[in-house]
Amino acid sequence: MAEQLYTYAVARIRSKELLLLSKSEIDQLLNCKSEKECLKLLSEKGWGKTGEEDSEEMLRVERDKIWNLMKELVEDISVFNMFLYTNDYHNLKAAIKQVYTDSKQDDIYITQGTVPVDVILNSVKEHNFSALPEHMQKSADEAYQVLLHTGDSQLCDVILDKAALETMLRKCKESKVELLAKYAELKVAAANINIAVRSNKTRKSRAFLERSIADCASLDKNKLISAALESLESIYQYLQFTDYADAVEAIKESSSAFERWCDNLIMKHIRPQKSNPFTISPLAAYILARENEIKTVRILLSGKRNEIDDGFIRERMRDMYV
């Protein structure tokens, strides 16, 4: 079948891109004196719904706007499921822990996912995961059993995080969209590097690393695990021979600097889509650009709320898509 062109959708996205925050607008937000002032400025730029929301509500509204727009633009929204799997697995983690601790909180779930929260919660309560998609069933059961028998919530998280990454990578590769495949590969590699660095610092075992590091093409799992078991220097040395050699400096600086490096690299990869008039790639790029924008604004607002020094916040600002 010929590749779908998404001509109408991409033309609408071209106009929507005009509303994305630019670097100068981020600077404007940085110059605001308080979180309230930032929210007012964002509201003037069309963020939020009523102009009366708090920061979390405003960001939630903005995220909903992305998905409502996509539902309008594409007939079958499942083409973007790869961006929602991490939400599903987050909800699964939250449901397993909620059932395990027998708590009643319901504000721990993310509304945007491919599986309704009720279905996930009921599956966990009944310990019957057949209602979940096939890719979730095995890992859900494994994570549930681990938490039930060992009480080790970190291991439960690790099992589900790995499953989420592997599912996302597989689905992105199956989509045959180069941009998505590249994005997923980078996300998985970044998560693996993070796990390797943290595991080294907390002296985790090989078994833990084997269980938590996902397979990906750009990193050799065995070499990374061996390096993580040795020293941080070994991890840096191994990375020098991979596509992530430039990341070493950022990793040495801090985990947030590395996260920023990854986000900026994703923006660099998706930026050429600004001039691509066809296919699903510009739509996917727009979703990633909006997510990046929301993440940047969240960091900025939280910095302003806690009266953190502007220089410190500025260091954490991501490169913008536009």
């Binding site: 991409v10 033309a11 609408r12 996205i13 106009s15 929507k16």
Partner: peptide, 14 residues
């Protein structure tokens, strides 16, 4: 037709 599809998208927004 192709131009019309893109045009509709653009005119929807502006």
């Amino acid at each position: 037709g192709l131009g019309g599809e893109a045009g509709s998208g653009l005119v929807t927004e502006d």
